[in-house]
């Protein structure tokens, strides 16, 4: 062992005695550089199309309408004082909360129902139940629009068959809000269903068997086995859907365009109307930015949930 250096020096004089610069180290460094280069397009997308626009949005929101003057938070205070905008806040929250609850409940029921089916039939039913979620909402909402048409509504025709009077689906504030929530529920419930179904399938059967042997009833199994096992995925799905629903644009834009009398506007559609259609870019930017705090909270909660899932290896 004493001749260790002798071997190194004797056999390979070329490298002997050299300080350990380390080709491997150099390679590791080169690898890091390469890795960075490979991630560069991603960085460019995130920096150029998300981070920069975000700060630009903040800057825009502090300018006057013609974008010539810095006005501080005037746009924000102006918006808060405006009744239409207060309605927008109320409606966005109402819309998101109601639609998400409806979607979650329907999704939950359907997932359970599907899970109870024999494996063979499941695929077929699942396939049909997912259709609303596959059609682009901008396209499927057109069909809803047509179903709600004031003079040709096929729903009203059916109501008439049962002797009920026509419903002003999109003409009355209350009904219009209902319609918008209904369409969003229609579009989003399949997503909840499929997420819950995946979660249900991942609960080991032994747990249910053990619970059954312990004497649990169906409700108790749901309460003590299914829900705890699905809690994480339920919260992730709900939070995720809250973001998407809260920030929705397509459905309201096509169905009501915010009407009647702005009673169905959401942040997204209102920002579009103010910023793009009326040409008040700064005010539109401010409307959008109002969504940010809530979205940020949801996003952090989701991230926590996802990290927890990763840790638990579920």
């Amino acid at each position: 062992m004493a001749d260790g250096s002798a071997i190194a020096a004797g056999r390979v004089p070329a490298t002997a005695g050299q300080p350990r610069t380390g080709t491997l180290k150099r390679m590791a460094r080169r690898r890091s550089t390469l890795a960075f280069l490979m991630a560069l397009p991603l960085l460019a997308v995130i920096a150029g199309l998300v981070i920069y626009p975000f700060f630009y949005a903040i800057e825009l929101s502090m300018l006057n309408k013609r974008m010539t003057r810095f006005v501080g938070i005037d746009n924000f205070t102006f918006l808060l004082g405006r009744e239409t905008f207060q309605l927008v806040i109320f409606q966005s929250v109402l819309f998101a909360v109601t639609a998400v609850i409806a979607k979650a409940l329907i999704g939950f029921v359907l997932a359970h129902v599907l899970h109870a089916l024999p494996a063979k039939g499941q695929r077929k039913w699942r396939g049909m139940l997912l259709v609303p979620w596959v059609i682009p909402p901008a396209v499927s909402t057109l069909a809803w629009w047509w179903l709600f048409d004031p003079s040709y509504s096929a729903f009203n025709w059916m109501l008439a068959v049962f002797g009920a009077g026509p419903v002003p689906w999109l003409g009355d504030a209350g009904w219009a809000r209902f319609a918008v929530i209904l369409v969003n529920t229609w579009y989003g419930a399949p997503f909840f269903m499929i997420m819950y179904l995946a979660a249900l399938k991942s609960v080991p059967d032994q747990l249910y068997e053990a619970a059954a042997i312990d004497g649990a009833t169906g409700i108790q199994k749901l309460r003590y086995v299914t829900l705890p096992m699905m809690r994480n995925i339920i919260s992730i799905t709900v939070l995720f859907s809250l973001i998407v629903t809260f920030a929705n644009f397509d459905i309201v834009r096509i169905l009501t365009n915010g009407g009647p009398q702005d009673r169905t506007h959401l942040f997204g559609t209102y920002a579009f109307q103010v910023g793009i259609q009326s040409g008040d870019i700064p005010l539109g930017a401010a409307v959008s930015l109002f969504m940010f705090p809530l979205l940020a909270v949801f996003a952090v909660l989701i991230l926590r949930g996802v990290n927890q899932r990763t840790k638990e290896g579920l």
């Binding site: 260790g4 056999r11 490298t15 002997a16 380390g22 080709t23 491997l24 180290k25």
Partner: peptide, 16 residues
């Protein structure tokens, strides 16, 4: 981290 490895008589510390 430190030391030398030789395979077939030549030092391979820095060889991929």
């Amino acid at each position: 981290t430190s030391g030398d490895i030789a395979i077939g008589g030549s030092i391979v510390n820095d060889i991929p």
